[in-house]
Structures are given as structure tokens and as C-alpha cells.
């Protein structure tokens, strides 16, 4: 049985708890054991905290990695931002004695040490690579005949040189995962365009971020998609929170929520009341 330390991050538990709930239920259904990564903090966010102070970013990330190391478990994230930070930090530290020594100088202050052994995984990639589309299909009890727009976001697959999950310009794994539920992923223009929220753009230049989002929404609508399926609570927040102002009305679901539905979870358990764009299923 696959077993992971469940890294919650910020936006899922504190804005869209339905994503956390669905992930727990879906993993249970797929025989993936999740152990809470107690005491973890923000990853910290790669586009803001890392941009402010890399030393803080790396040390706080190393603390999170060390918490999982103490449990002897790989980390599983449900957010591209957390995945970006923790994967990058592990890449920088694991197998690099000099970098480890430096970060451990900081961790020593709190009586911790990171040995450099934690592996970092993303929920969607774990499902694709460890469980597989065929086994997922067996668990679908309620096929969903939705036309959807898949949204990979940026930090799930990129930088591909270190992540090696899929073609970063023309990927298919999320489409395959979504279609395992019976849904149809609609092809569209500029599918890999950023949602606009990352890199601190949403906070400092919200109007610019909205322009990215608008182009995405226009392309999604033109494709005939009725729902947006994401793998990142921050992209989720950007699409869910912006549509009212931009004049769109496409419900936004995290992959875990789509899977929850397909595997028989009640609508109530998906936490849809936290969504700003109403979700009509």
C-alpha cells in the first residue's frame, strides 16, 4: 500500500477545505494511506516568500522536508506551489552536502536536522504513475459525462528538466486522468498559459493576473468546456474568484473533487459552499 506524508499547504485547508476532504476520501478509495504531516508550515510559497528571502525559503522548506523524513515517508502535495517549492528545495538539498550543511546550521537552532532523503510527489502524478488510469477506472462508480477544460498550471510539470513528468508544452497525463471518469477533455488554444496568479502577480498586480485569466477563460469557453479541472488550489482560487468580475460562469473543481464525485462522494462532502463561482453539477 502506497503511503505518504500529506502536505496540506495554505489555500486548500484554509480556503477550499473540500479539496482536502476529497483528497483524503479519494486516497482511501485507491488504497493510498495518508499520514498527516503534523506541524508543517506554508511550503513556503515559491513566487513570494522565495522572492523575498531565499535563505528563509530554503530553511523553512527544509524544516517541512525534515518533518517527513522523521516519519520516513515521501511527501504528497495537492498544490503546484507546494510541489514547486518542496520539489525544488529537495532538488537543491538532497545529495548536496554543502547545501545541506548550510541549511542545517539554521535547523540546528531548533534542534532539527535534514539528512536529504525526502522525496516529493504531487497528488495527480501519484495517481497517474503509482495507481494508474486502469485501476482508477475500476473505482469509478458514477461516470461523469462532462465536457471539461483541464488546467495543469505551471509548477506541476515545470521546470521539466528536473521534474520529468510529461511534455511541458503538450502534456496528456491530466487529460488521461480526467477522462478516466468518463469526462471529455476539450482541446483548446494556449492550453499551457499560466492562470496569472503566480510569482506574486495576483497580490501586487491583480489586474495583470486577471488578463491572463481572461484569455484562459475565453479559450476554455470557446472549446465547449463546461467545467474547469485544476490540480492546484492557487490556480483554483484564481479561476474561481475571478469569474464573477470577468463575466464567466464555469464551475471550478480540483481533480480530487472530480474524483470524489466519480467515486461516489456526496456533493455535500466536496465543500462546494466555499466556491465563489457556483458549482452546479
Amino acid at each position: 500500500m502506497a503511503k505518504y506524508a500529506f502536505f496540506l499547504g495554505c489555500i486548500a485547508p484554509l480556503r477550499y477545505p473540500g479539496i482536502e476532504k476529497s483528497t483524503r476520501e479519494v486516497c482511501k478509495a485507491l488504497d493510498i494511506e495518508l499520514v498527516d504531516l503534523d506541524d508543517a508550515s506554508c511550503c513556503p510559497a515559491p513566487g513570494v516568500i522565495r522572492a523575498f528571502n531565499k535563505k528563509t525559503w530554503l530553511a523553512a522548506a527544509a524544516r517541512n522536508l525534515a518533518l517527513a523524513e522523521q516519519k520516513g515517508l515521501p511527501i504528497m502535495t495537492i498544490c503546484n506551489g507546494c510541489y514547486g517549492t518542496l520539489f525544488d528545495a529537495a532538488h537543491e538539498l538532497n545529495g548536496n552536502p554543502e547545501a545541506l550543511k548550510e541549511v542545517n546550521e539554521v535547523l540546528k537552532e531548533i534542534g532539527m536536522e535534514y539528512k536529504g532523503t525526502t522525496e516529493v510527489r504531487h497528488f495527480a502524478e501519484v495517481l497517474y504513475n503509482e495507481i494508474g488510469v486502469e485501476k482508477i477506472k475500476e473505482k469509478v462508480t458514477k461516470p461523469l459525462e462532462y465536457q471539461v477544460a483541464t488546467f495543469y498550471g505551471c509548477h506541476f510539470l515545470k521546470p521539466s528538466a528536473i521534474k520529468n513528468l510529461d511534455d511541458p508544452e503538450n502534456p496528456h497525463i491530466l487529460d488521461d486522468l480526467v477522462e478516466a471518469t468518463g469526462a471529455k477533455s476539450m482541446p483548446r488554444q494556449q492550453k499551457m498559459l499560466c492562470c496569472g496568479a503566480g510569482g506574486g502577480l495576483k497580490a501586487a498586480f491583480g489586474d495583470v493576473a486577471m488578463k491572463f485569466t481572461q484569455t484562459n477563460l475565453e479559450n476554455m469557453q470557446a472549446s465547449g468546456a463546461k467545467y474547469i479541472i485544476d490540480v492546484c488550489p492557487f490556480c483554483h482560487l484564481q479561476f474561481d474568484g475571478s469569474q464573477k468580475d470577468l463575466g464567466f460562469n464555469m464551475p471550478v473543481l480540483h481533480l480530487s473533487q472530480l474524483y470524489g464525485l466519480a467515486m461516489g462522494m456526496s456533493e455535500q462532502d466536496l465543500g462546494l459552499s466555499a466556491h465563489i463561482t457556483p458549482v452546479v453539477l
Partner: peptide, 28 residues
């Protein structure tokens, strides 16, 4: 949803929060 009201992160532990605070101070 049957989840703990406060997630089981640094939010739920004074010790963990104090550790994080220390990291933030040491790294400026």
C-alpha cells in the same frame, strides 16, 4: 466536513510555531 477546525499544521502547535519563528529570525 469532519475535518479538524484548525488544520493539523503549525497552526495547531505552539512548539512548531515557535520553531518556525526561530527560523524566520535566524534567516533575517
Amino acid at each position: 466536513l469532519g475535518l479538524p477546525g484548525i488544520p493539523p499544521t503549525v497552526l495547531a502547535s505552539d512548539k512548531a510555531k515557535a520553531d518556525l519563528d526561530k527560523i524566520l529570525t535566524v534567516t533575517g
